[in-house]
């Protein structure tokens, strides 16, 4: 379906983040490890169980999602921004690759990074807390779909952004609040009505809830709806990213 050039860009994207592993892989593992130790081990014993699972296990799916969303987004947005900023994006634009192929190759690069980060945090959860995965296949599907969605969002922002600030604004003012309000560290049933209702319109809540179902076998709401939301966002963001690349929006003059 896709040309060889398409896979070469994917390879380039993966090599790039592997080359920068100190910036791209280690930070999420370290921060997740700290979250597990501080929130899970230190506070977990006081909180006890939520929905029949230990608190330390309850928070791991949310931490995994944090480790998927930000790196997937950062990978594609910063890679495109850097290529735009240093103008070596022209090396790719002049090739026989379509806008769809170019955007999808960046999305796959970001997706791989997101999935690798998520898998590393799951592995960390296993070593630190003895976490056992309930459904490996569904876990992978969630990691993949959410990473794909946010890698797609990264391509859109990477194309749109005129400065590095724009990329960080999205992370700091949108993703982080939505992640923390998405029930990473608590069940939304613990929240007052207003915040519970707010969480219900937060797509990240559904994504975290879906992964919690896949990894722990517990869900506060419909897991099928969570899967639908994750896939819908993946399709929407990647379609918009491909459309923007095909039109050359802010890339071609």
């Amino acid at each position: 379906m896709f040309s060889r050039g398409f896979w070469v860009i994917v390879k380039r994207e993966v090599k790039r983040f592997m080359f920068l592993y100190k910036q791209t892989l280690l930070p999420s593992v370290i921060s997740s490890g700290l979250y597990i130790i501080v929130f899970g081990a230190a506070m977990g014993s006081r909180i006890g169980e939520i929905k029949g699972v230990e608190y330390i296990h309850f928070i791991i799916p949310g931490l995994v999602m944090m480790s998927v969303i930000n790196p997937a987004y950062q990978n594609s947005s910063s890679s495109i921004m850097q290529a735009k900023f240093l103008r070596f994006i022209e090396d790719i634009l002049i090739t026989p690759l379509s806008g769809l192929e170019i955007s999808l190759s960046y999305i796959i690069g970001g997706t791989v990074r997101g999935v690798v980060n998520g898998a590393l945090v799951l592995l960390l959860g296993y070593f630190l807390t003895g976490l056992q995965i309930d459904n490996w296949f569904l876990t992978f599907v969630y990691l993949f779909a959410v990473a794909w969605a946010f890698a797609g969002a990264g391509v859109i922002v990477g194309i749109y952004a005129k400065s590095w600030d724009s990329i960080m604004v999205i992370t700091n003012f949108f993703f982080m609040p939505l992640i923390f309000l998405g029930g990473v560290f608590y069940s939304i049933e613990m929240l007052p009505d207003f915040w519970r209702n707010f969480s219900m319109i937060n797509p990240l809540y559904w994504m975290i809830n879906g992964l919690r179902y896949a990894t722990l076998g517990i869900a506060e709401t419909s897991h099928e709806f969570s899967l639908g939301i994750s896939i819908l966002f993946a399709i929407f963001f990647s379609s918009l990213a491909s459309f923007m690349f095909s039109k050359g929006y802010r890339i071609k003059t």
């Binding site: 040309s3 050039g5 380039r12 240093l86 103008r87 090396d91 026989p96």
Partner: peptide, 26 residues
């Protein structure tokens, strides 16, 4: 195309740059 401005992918060596560019063309 050899553009006027000298812009290079900063993550790769000269050899890798050329191999990637050839790969983009299939």
């Amino acid at each position: 195309l050899s553009p006027q401005e000298l812009n290079f992918d900063v993550f790769f060596s000269i050899g890798e740059l050329l191999e990637l560019q050839a790969g983009y063309y299939g």
